[in-house]
């Protein structure tokens, strides 16, 4: 049975890694053809990206959007996580479900709704918002808040609340306790939440499709439109650049929080329970 498991697992890994590997391999191809095995290695398609203003502008837009969404998601998500994990909150589970609900809304449907809202706003005499960064940024903020809230709340719940009580009983005020005790203990969750928020925003496509136009075209939308236009590795090269950007974000997460912290709380609970078993 274990052998059968291994065969299926190997097949699963093949399915998981085939497409990313094909993109990376093609990006370094010396010719426009996709050759297996490659006839050599070349960086010419990366150099040629400087002549692709639409892709470069998409990259810049997506980077700023990702940073902005992550920062704003921290500003909304950390307070929400504090409210959820400290003290008693009436209807806690309902609040949590509401906060996480944007994750189960289809991105394209949400995008259409936000576009409808922006045009209704303009029709009612408000400023023209369609095609600006406001609806796009708000949409990205909406789907990144759940990641920050969940990850920070998990970190807060696995930290010992006694530390905060001790700080208070030793005379620290509520704000001092918050900034010197609570937030530092939640740092792994904050870093992991910020990096997930960036990665989610940077790679999002369906939500941006209706909201991106002109200056606000994000990189995934630009890549989608470019796939049919290029019969050479241009798209593979810019895709590889996006892989490098998110890999850098993952390294940052690992450096400051330990990437396995993403699975931290579950493991800790398991150990805790095993320890308390008779």
């Amino acid at each position: 049975m274990v052998a059968a498991l291994r065969v299926l697992a190997a097949l699963a890994y093949l399915v998981l890694l085939a497409a990313p590997l094909a993109v990376i391999l093609y990006a370094f191809s010396p010719t426009a053809a996709f050759e297996i095995p490659p006839s050599g290695l070349s960086l010419r398609w990366f150099a040629a990206l400087t002549d692709q203003p639409r892709l470069i502008s998409g990259l810049v837009t997506s980077l700023w959007l990702g940073f902005g969404a992550a920062a704003a998601a921290l500003a909304c998500g950390i307070p929400a996580a504090l409210a959820l994990s400290r003290g008693s909150l009436p209807g806690r589970n309902i609040v949590l479900a509401v906060l996480l609900s944007p994750l189960s809304l289809p991105g394209l449907v949400l995008g259409l709704g936000i576009l409808t809202t922006a045009s209704a706003f303009a029709a009612a005499g408000g400023p023209a918002l369609v095609g600006t960064f406001l609806p796009l940024g708000a949409a990205h903020l909406l789907i990144t808040i759940p990641w920050v809230t969940r990850s920070v709340a998990a970190s807060l719940e696995s930290a010992a609340p006694e530390l905060e009580e001790q700080a208070r009983s030793l005379g620290a005020g509520p704000l001092t306790t918050l900034f010197l005790v609570t937030l530092p203990t939640a740092r792994p969750g904050i870093v992991a939440g910020a990096v997930s928020a960036f990665v989610i925003s940077f790679g999002n496509f369906a939500l941006s499709l209706f909201l991106a136009s002109g200056r606000t075209v994000t990189l995934p939308v630009a890549i989608f439109e470019a796939v049919d236009r290029y019969q050479d590795p241009t798209v593979a090269a810019i895709s590889t650049v996006t892989i490098l950007v998110t890999a850098a974000a993952a390294v940052v997460a690992d450096r400051f929080a330990g990437v396995m912290q993403l699975r931290g709380p579950a493991r800790r609970r398991e150990r805790g329970r095993a320890g308390s078993a008779p």
Binding site: G87, S88, G113, T149
Partner: peptide, 29 residues
């Protein structure tokens, strides 16, 4: 002893985003 929480006010920014960017758009749909 029920520990007093930091208050539901902290939820306001996140809930406002969900209301304005998810609930209102679905309502307009």
């Amino acid at each position: 002893r029920v520990r007093r929480g930091p208050g539901p006010l902290l939820l306001l920014p996140a809930l406002a985003v969900v209301a304005l960017v998810a609930a209102v758009p679905v309502g307009l749909l």
